[in-house]
Nucleic acid binder design. Structure first.
Lengths: 241, 241
DNA sequence: TAAATATAGTTGTCTATACCAATAATCCAT
DNA sequence: ATGGATTATTGGTATAGACAACTATATTTA
């Protein structure tokens, strides 16, 4: 269960082990976990190391603890599934639709002031602009413009973009995309959007602007997407603070 | 700064101290914190205790750490209070605007099929319909229609609605609103919305439909809101799963 | 000059130990 | 039975020290 000679940290091994027990249903909501000292004795590891594993799971809302009583499995961890940072392809897949993409433009442009500020780079600095029409069931769904600092991500090619940019970043470059914010507003399609999305003039659209960051907190990309309002709804889960 | 004889835990004292430095601007985004060992030496406390304080702040997104390099203040502090289940009033307050409200309609209606299904009650069952114009700085911002099962929440009055419905539910009835989902879409204002929101015909609007549940998972209310697109943007935080 | 190497400093992992604080169960006197 | 004290168990706080992994900088070497 626990491999002390592994390069994988012990606390992490224990963490994943307990997580699996919960997700597989072997530990049910409300169940009590063995005490820290039991884990410590059983696996021959320090109690502080056990604590690190358990506290991480408490932070992720898998467990909760009561002083003097014990550690228990949370009632419902089945929260925010649609909350995550998903790609268009994943999003469509979750909706049961076939995703497609047409590359409209791929070039390096100088960042205008607002973009530079958002990307946290100097004004006029080089930025990839990737403009794509996103298709669902072969019909236009959204116009997507991605902006990435060319200094941060050198050597980007059309080919990489046409496969999966995210996969390339995470697997080849070994950078981790961590979190972001998303701004949502309703608007009316402009001329470019009318043409590319194949919708009537003055059609309503939903504009979403996403900022993604890397683990080290550097801004990685700005994505501005214009969705056809007649085809797209967006669902989020709300959590009580 | 640190009072070792205090019953307040040392790590917590240090945590609050650092938090204050950030919130008062003495530590600015991107600034490096003193290293763990510096804190440890300076205050005569163990490095592990310092770690506990710092790791808590990392968890709360005040700080981030880079192995081998140091601990730094996050770029964007916690401005994202918009994630929770907030009322219109709270939402506007967070945006620095004065919130107002005009009651347009308050009656009990029979639930049509879709509404009944959403509320999880029988078709034609009695439902409060509360229709309000929401004002920001005395100008219409949204048209809000709230639907609540009359059997679940008996004896609702206009007066209660005009104060705070949420407060009434939580404090007087002692029910706890726990979580919900929100559906967002863009559209064009219909005639009623054009009139009540005082916007031109064919104006774009953002429609948000919220479902709120009680702690015991019963659906408590459906709120369908139509926001003026020219006045309202919506921001959410995305988290990696 | 450029590349490789050493170094100092940082966070990350882990151990072993000690005592405190809250809870739960038991026992006992009333 | 009820209430109170006792005890065992649990998580919470805190220490001191060791080594690993990583980063940035300085130094040496080619």
């Amino acid at each position: 269960m626990i491999d002390k000679s592994s390069p994988i940290p012990i606390y992490y091994q224990l963490e994943e082990y307990i997580k699996k027990l919960i997700e597989s249903g072997q530990l049910k909501p409300g169940d009590a976990l063995p005490s820290e000292r039991e884990y410590s004795d059983k696996y021959g590891i320090s109690r502080m190391t056990v604590r690190q594993a358990i506290l991480n799971l408490v932070n992720d809302r898998y467990l909760y603890r009561v002083k003097g009583s014990g550690t228990f499995v949370m009632e419902q961890k089945l929260e925010q599934k649609l909350q995550g940072l998903t790609s268009f392809t994943e999003d469509m897949k979750a909706r049961g639709m076939k995703a497609g993409s047409t590359l409209v433009n791929f070039e390096i442009i100088p960042a205008h002031r607002k973009l530079a500020s958002l990307l946290n780079i100097p004004e006029h600095g080089p930025v990839y602009e990737i403009k794509r029409i996103r298709l669902a069931e072969d019909i236009p769904m959204a116009l997507e413009r991605t902006y990435i600092s060319a200094n941060l991500l050198q050597g980007l090619t059309e080919k990489i973009v046409e496969n999966s940019l995210y996969k390339y970043i995470e697997e080849t470059l070994n950078m981790k995309i961590d979190s972001g914010t998303q701004l949502i507003e309703a608007s009316v399609a402009n001329k470019e959007e009318v043409n590319l999305l194949e919708i009537p003039e003055l059609s309503p659209v939903m504009i979403m602007q996403r900022t993604s960051k890397l683990e080290d907190n550097r801004v990685f990309e700005i994505v501005k997407s214009t969705y056809r309002a007649d085809r797209y709804k967006f669902m989020i889960d709300l959590k009580r603070l």
